[in-house]
Design a protein around this nucleic acid. Structure first.
Lengths: 145, 145
DNA sequence: CATATATTTGAAATTGAAAATCAAGAACAT
DNA sequence: ATGTTCTTGATTTTCAATTTCAAATATATG
């Protein structure tokens, strides 16, 4: 699966006439082996530990490339940090965000998606993307308070 | 209705031991007479035209106060600008955002709200707030492209 | 293989929104 | 009126993200 994604990115890069660089390979490896929802800073620090040479800007740039390539998706929560999550074959999911421990839980709901489409239709909108986030306390954090 | 909101803010200010200032009155007037979804900068510029003395920081601070007072709600869309919308008696609504002309259309959907609660329950979450935004092109912008 | 050219990188500077700082000014209780 | 405390606004700071640009690197070509 990781190999497939690497191939996908290489295909994208080739199609766009991008060069194959050591940095992009490294960043892709780290991104693919990381859990969902890494922030740029998080990923940058993780990479830096073993590859001190890699710069901030390159990580930012490269994550944008992954997004363009369809490997990653930008997640903007309410804390001003951009996160990136893995994209698997067009599926979309939404997020429960715990304001206590910052955990992010994914969910999908077909019915909600359908209702969204109806709402858009009603207003003559053509939806390109959407964002649904439920903020609150997860079970563990509720227990602790 | 505007009068009610002014009273509500005065009550809030009194309860919090805040002082009544010319600036807060002016900002409240402008906020109340403005359309939904003003960004801080927008409101600041509008006020500045007739009240050049009022500072950036005061507008930021005061809008946060309105939010605390329950008169306003912060809206964070994907463009990095904080907007404030009017709150009317606890009702909540979500947004269709046109990426063509930046129009923001409000909608409400009981069924979606209900489904959200079910999802939260399923995950043991206690929801404090939520955010649903549908990004796309409005009817007019679709026609123009 | 060498070389030319075009892309990519990374350090540093810049941007832009928001928050913090702090002296001067204003509100309020007395 | 006066002293205390809060508020303001110019400025600085912060922080994430982007831009800049010279140096480094990848690739095509001879």
């Amino acid at each position: 699966m990781i190999l497939e994604k690497k191939k996908a990115f290489n295909a994208f890069a080739a199609a766009k006439g991008l060069r194959s660089t050591r940095q992009r390979d490294i960043i892709l490896d780290f991104f693919l082996s990381t859990r969902q929802h890494v922030s740029v800073e998080e990923l940058y620090l993780k990479i830096k530990a073993s590859h001190p040479g890699i710069g901030h800007a390159t990580v930012y740039r490269t994550l944008k490339l992954f997004t363009e390539a369809g490997l990653a998706r930008e997640i903007l929560l309410n804390d001003g940090q951009t996160r990136y999550e893995h994209v698997s074959a067009g599926e979309h999911h939404d997020h429960l965000v715990c304001t206590g421990c910052n955990a992010i839980i994914e969910f999908e709901d077909e019915t909600i998606e359908k209702l969204q489409k109806e709402i858009a239709l009603l207003h003559g909108f053509m939806i390109k993307s959407h964002k649904l986030e439920l903020y609150g306390l997860c079970a563990a954090c509720r227990a602790n308070q």
